[in-house]
Write a protein that binds this DNA or RNA. Structure first.
Lengths: 249, 249
DNA sequence: GATTTTCCTGCAAGTTTTTGCGGTATTCTA
DNA sequence: TAGAATACCGCAAAAACTTGCAGGAAAATC
């Protein structure tokens, strides 16, 4: 990997997360911590970031870092993304939904990993295109609102011909008896198609959404291979899910 | 292979991949790394790319994320976009390709216009989603490199069921006798399908690309309803096109 | 058509950049 | 304040770069 390329990646990560530790960067980019420190020093000298003991912070001057999306529970999402990361293995064919957690997940991916990814999210596709060994397929269809994902019959049609190893998607609501639900029929049908098109599925779910029920049924919980959430297993509400056979990450 | 020819290939590769190593270019173009370095140095001096230790990166100078041939034709692209703008009318169904000119065009659109747009460009789709009265459909398929457009059989399949009023696309090469051509088979076939799926088509073409011939045939010129370019009509080379029945905007 | 001139390319020698590592200093944390 | 984590420094090897040069191709000139 070229030095400048690596430094650009560091800048992107910092723009995304506002902070980063040298050790993490070293592991992620597969270079020594010394090299990372040298990079950080150069970037700091150029005024792009602020270097601190242990890593670096986003430059307080740039308004860029404040544009953080919504007031969503960022830290929790980060935790979930990190939990799911090891499930993504070299050379897999993966279907990815859109959403903030999944965008985090993508930013954690090893830049040299080789994958084939089908996604209905414009933002996820946009980011993955920069991975040189990832083949990206965008699932065509009507794009709904701000989430920037395509939904509906076209997506479902295209998924019919896909047989993926893994489907990674964000869960809007999950309930032990009712199953997975959403508040939009098209999106619900699309997610169902995604799950069906893959051998295994991992649902990413903020704990606040566990137990919630929304109008449109996606599937029952037993179609879900794994559930990734940020709370420890003991949490009461999860027990009925575990009894239903849901595995946790 | 001529030097200039080789440098153009280097530019295209960088425009597509956003980065390249000298060693790769050397192997691919079958010349020594020294020659590649000399090429990169010249291109960097012309401001077309950014040379770095080990290879080169796309030029970050240009405001938009797509880097075409240097910064020169930006003004011309603006002119073309402005010429085409009046052709887009309320309530039309439009197929849009990707490319810098088209991105300009989108940024000129009236924010309240009502349209239905099919596009294979992630960037175009991303921008159009913010228009409240525009229905955006992304054409699914494999995303090719840096241009961030989907191509190939999936796109073509999806277009089969579309019947649009207008197709707006960027022309890579046009020649009065040979017709429209491109340097990538998948893209060529995709563009052909786009043109076929619409009643009328407008090709956006920088004048420097008029008269050029590339390996893959898209269609003959008579499938083109209008050609939009930045030079006045008197220009010599255009006459043979006019005689072939091409209309100019 | 022959000759001169200019340009292009690959090679070799020497220089610079990049990177990881060991050793040491500094900073953080309990 | 001790121990751990982090940072810095200098060094060495590998990779990449620069430069000058020579053979050969292309273009210009006569």
């Amino acid at each position: 990997m070229l030095k400048e390329e690596r430094q650009n990646m560091i800048l992107e990560i910092i723009a995304d997360r506002n902070k980063i530790r040298s050790a993490e960067l070293s592991a992620h980019l597969k270079v020594s911590e010394d090299t990372i420190r040298r990079d950080l020093r150069e970037l700091a000298e150029g005024g792009f970031i602020k270097k601190v003991h242990g890593g670096a912070l986003a430059n307080p001057k740039t308004p860029e870092s404040i544009h953080r999306r919504g007031s969503a529970p960022l830290a929790e999402m980060q935790v979930i993304a990190e939990k799911v990361l090891p499930s993504i293995k070299e050379n897999q064919v993966i279907i990815m939904d859109g959403g903030v957690i999944i965008e985090h997940l993508v930013s954690l991916l090893n830049p040299d990993i080789s994958l084939t990814v089908f996604t209905n999210s414009i933002l996820v596709a946009d980011r993955l295109v920069d991975f040189s060994s990832v083949e990206v397929y965008i699932l065509g269809g009507k794009i709904a609102g701000r989430r920037r994902v395509s939904n509906g019959i076209d997506v479902i049609n295209m998924l019919q011909e896909v047989n993926a190893d893994l489907c990674i998607f964000e869960i809007s609501s999950i309930h032990a008896d009712i199953g997975l639900t959403g508040n939009n029929r098209d999106i619900a049908l699309t997610q169902k198609a995604m799950i069906t098109a893959a051998n295994h599925s991992i649902g990413l779910c903020l704990s606040e959404r566990i137990g919630r029920i929304q109008p449109f049924r996606i599937t029952t919980v037993n179609y879900l291979s794994y559930l990734a959430t940020e709370v420890p297993k003991e949490s009461g509400m999860l027990h009925s899910l575990i009894q239903k056979g849901v595995h946790f990450i």
